[in-house]
């Protein structure tokens, strides 16, 4: 059992971070805190992808003249890193759209608290 935690400790921390983000998105009553939760959630996913690329003792995936050509194992996998560049861009765009929607909501209701807005809306 100890071996399991040692081998997968990084993944476990990553999924803990994921649940923190999910908790913020679903249960926080303030909309900006929901956006913060969303950012944590997306960061956890990015870390998860990077973790899958990690190799014990692997080096950067740029051709190293001291290594023989047939040793692909010596490099870490660059594909998840490339994918996560796209995911980071998507995340930034999502936060941007979310905040711009919130500016309109704040302008109309004068608050970003879910309870206050619901009171305001039901009036």
């Amino acid at each position: 059992m100890n071996g399991f935690f040692e081998d997968y400790s990084a993944y476990i921390m990553c999924f803990l971070l994921l649940t923190v983000g999910l908790y913020g998105m679903l249960l926080k009553r303030n909309y900006v805190k929901k956006v913060i939760g969303m950012t944590i959630f997306q960061a956890a996913i990015i870390l998860f992808f990077i973790l899958t690329a990690y190799k014990e003792g692997g080096t950067v995936p740029v051709k190293d003249p001291t290594l023989p050509l047939d040793q692909a194992d010596a490099y870490i996998n660059p594909l998840p890193h490339a994918l996560m560049l796209t995911a980071i861009v998507v995340g930034v765009a999502t936060v941007g759209v979310a905040l711009s929607l919130l500016i309109r909501v704040y302008g109309a209701y004068g608050s970003l608290d879910e309870d206050k807005i619901q009171q305001e809306a039901s009036k």
Binding site: Y31, V97, A98, L101, L102, R104, A108, Y109, A121
Partner: peptide, 12 residues
């Protein structure tokens, strides 16, 4: 503004 609010909830 109501549309923005529900759109934000949808975004989450």
């Amino acid at each position: 503004a109501k549309a923005s609010l529900s759109s934000f909830r949808y975004l989450i």
